[in-house]
């Protein structure tokens, strides 16, 4: 999609969605975040590269919609020790690009980069990567059908990642 054809209103809507998701994650608004997903959603954080086959190889997260719900429920028990207390996080999402989809009712493919500071008792951990979203227009605004997070260090040893990425 060349820059000249970008629909500014659409890009603005997409950016606002992506920023809203980031804020909900940073502020541990678990219900709000879960409501952003479609019923057939997929939430994926690959390991050992970005182009692996998640049906045959290990991923860090490979959640279908039901497992997203389990993840949120676990966080909400208050006994998810890796997030009790929750990590303090703030992330900057940038380089938001509409990669595909004209907005005629079909899904939009959106790319963005992020940098994230996580503070826990252990100390500050810096996370960075690229997110690819598939956003589906609904009568109630955009919803996430797919989010893939490519951590820059997904091929190395990483600390616990129990907050919402």
């Amino acid at each position: 999609m060349s820059g000249a054809t970008v629909n500014r209103d659409l890009l603005l809507e997409v950016e606002q969605f992506v920023y809203r998701e980031a804020r909900m994650q940073d502020e541990h608004d678990y219900d709000g975040w879960e409501a952003l997903w479609t019923d057939d959603a997929l939430y994926w954080v690959p390991a050992n590269g970005d182009a692996i086959d998640p049906t045959r190889e290990m991923s860090i997260i490979f959640d279908n919609r039901s497992r997203i719900a389990t993840r949120v429920k676990q966080l909400k028990t208050g006994k998810r020790h890796a997030q009790a207390p929750p990590s303090r996080t703030r992330r900057v999402v940038s380089n938001v690009e509409l990669l595909d989809g004209a907005g005629d009712g079909g899904e939009l493919v959106v790319g963005a980069n992020f940098v994230l500071y996580e503070s826990r008792e252990r100390g500050v951990t810096l996370w960075a990567g690229r997110s690819t979203y598939r956003l589906r227009p609904t009568g109630d605004g955009l919803r996430m059908a797919y989010k893939k997070i490519e951590l820059v260090n997904n091929d190395r040893a990483i600390f616990t990642l129990a907050f919402l990425i």
């Binding site: 991923s59 389990t70 020790h81 890796a82 616990t160 129990a162």
Partner: peptide, 18 residues
């Protein structure tokens, strides 16, 4: 296994916190 273990696993993230 993907659900249970590793940095974001339902089980191992909590073991690792311990």
């Amino acid at each position: 296994t993907i659900g249970s273990v590793g940095p974001a696993g339902f089980l191992l993230a909590d073991d690792s916190e311990m």
